[in-house]
Nucleic acid binder design. Structure first.
Lengths: 210, 210, 210, 210
DNA sequence: TATGAATGAGACTTCATTCAT
DNA sequence: TATGAATGAAGTCTCATTCAT
């Protein structure tokens, strides 16, 4: 798989000091995520975000241009975090069934940890501009691509027998079935522990319903 | 399959004529769905909804109490529609693998038809009150339950060998993998036709990745 | 005392039958007073008044032209009632101190009975049109006039020694000190029974603070 | 006279600078009183108040939470003003009949100056919340209390012979008869000059109608 | 005469964004 | 750089009044 180069969408600032920008944005994102989790993007005001971030509304606007920028920063940071961790793990994949299973388990664990972040991501993405949405979709494609390449290695090693299209679809399925743990938590987490969920899903993924 | 009785959450009206209420609400829902699809719930104003429905803002408020009521009415009507159609089809299931496959295919077709409606449903549900959300969740549980009982029939007939927990999880998986067609249309519908998608997913669902 | 002729301000109707008009207006007034007492004129909607009156909003508007008409009708009916009763009592005054005292006591009793009505009257009068306010003021002047003529009789009989201007002022004082029982009920009725109040006020009115 | 401590009901602000708050509120109150005088509380819009105060509607809402807050601020400021002035005058009372008369005259003068403010006060108080009304009543009680203590001093000095209950009632009477000058101005101010009114009322108050 | 559905002007309030300090 | 007061467009909802039935 070719690594598509995604150029970081820029969020304009009036501040020059890069170190400061990073620091302020971190505060901002941390505050915003916490608020978005409970009140959603539209239910949260910029004033609240500024307060949660620990500075004034004036300062907030020194580091962003519009409220949407904050949402973008939040979404981006979540993906950055997840795809970073996942990439590191799946990257050193050797292409055996066992390591595939371990990769899946690891991904599910991340989803579990970051449930609410993912919720924010999926429920608010549509509030982004077309451009920003596109950028986010690309990041997601990148993550699905990680599973694709793991699966492909297994196929190459003769451990799996899947067509190219099946590889692609299965990568999506793994991705989505992971998210399901968080999205349908009202049903899933009442019925299963995370370990049970991983075990059962892995089984169904590998052998189907026969 | 036990039919859980869900008592319809009432939306208050100042109009008395039941026939008229139905008619006006239909207009309202139709208009609202169209707007929510492109602009989302928060991006749509009550005035726009009234105009799209073909009457004045005053009249709109004769049939609802708050803007949220509209969202509820919309969500409810989508579920009512889908679960009605699905229930009719799956209800007459005989419990063979073939008819299970046909049921899945039918469900995927419905999802395809109502993609944008489902998008609205999943992206805006969180804007509902706790009560209304609960009602919607129950309706969804009801739909998942339909798949569960079909699967269970197959197990009873000896056509499938799944534990009770696997039945439950698989029902969710079918449900979610169906939604996936609509939610990830930017990826799915670029790669597969609906028929291919149905065929591939059915295969993976039944035999896994081996 | 010259009896000023006050020509009854007309409230336009589309209904012809005088008997019916009277009946509907009575219902209307009764309902409106009850509502105004607790919610005030501005806090009460025409719909509520119609409902309280026992008919539809459409019917309500067959008997009045604007919401203000209702207020006028209410105010007018209260004065009509009070000044009717008071006129009958004070009219047969013989001009002795005793009967003056009895007249005051009688008036205070009426105020007590109709406290909330008076409250409505004084708090909402300002919402009437200039014309209607003028009419109401005239009715009030008429009532104060009743006390004036009683006082005057006493002066004529040599039972009181007051100048004309003192007569006029005293009439107002009696009138206002009566209203005080209802207007300042939070203070008065916590401290005195109606009988005590009448007795004390009469004493102060007659002998002053020495 | 015991001085009851009334804790100032707070009106929430998003502005921090206390000096500025005071300044803006003064502008606001001044504008609002002028409008309430002619159009009443319900007849005045928040936009009009903002304009009259000299700033935008957005700014208005930086200094209050709801429209009712404005009414409260207005009522409070009127009482504060009056009771301040009255307290200063009556406070230095020596307990002679002469100084009592002077006190009454001074009070009547204040009422005359602030007629329309008092009108606003009495006609709109009922639009306040229960809490705010209670606060306003307490302030009024405080003012009546000032007269009570002056009267009491006179009784203690042997200048007046009144029972405790008579003292209390007379204090209310003075208070109300003062208000009467403003409330019934359509009758009073047509008949008497302020000086005449003071003189006549004082006479009646002191010697009664004999 | 009686009804009640329809209307829309207009009220209150919020909040993203700016800009002088 | 940081602050926070000021702004006003825009949103939701109410309610007096009308008019076809």
């Amino acid at each position: 798989m070719e690594k598509t180069v995604i150029k970081k969408r820029e969020v304009k600032t009036s501040v020059k000091d890069e170190r400061l920008i990073q620091k302020r944005r971190d505060q901002m994102i941390r505050g915003a995520v916490a608020l978005f989790k409970t009140k959603g993007f539209h239910g949260t005001t910029t004033r609240e975000i500024a307060r949660a971030a620990g500075f004034s509304i004036g300062t907030l606007y020194e580091y962003i241009r519009t409220k949407e920028d904050i949402l973008f920063l939040v979404c981006d940071s979540i993906y950055e975090n997840v795809s970073g961790r996942l990439g590191k793990d799946l990257g050193q994949q050797k292409g055996t069934l066992l390591s595939l299973k371990l990769g899946i388990a690891y991904y599910f664990t991340i989803v579990n940890e970051m449930q609410t972040e993912f919720l924010v991501l999926y429920q608010e993405t549509k509030s982004l501009s077309r451009d920003a949405q596109h950028y986010i979709f690309e990041k997601e494609t990148e993550m699905v691509g990680m599973f694709e390449s793991v699966l492909r290695k297994c196929v190459d090693n003769g451990e799996l027998h899947l067509s190219e299209r099946e590889v692609e679809l299965m990568a999506h399925n793994i991705f989505v079935l992971g998210q399901m743990w968080g999205f349908r938590r009202w049903a899933m987490q009442k019925q299963y522990t995370l370990e049970e969920y991983i075990e059962l899903q892995t089984k169904l993924l590998f052998s189907g319903i026969k």
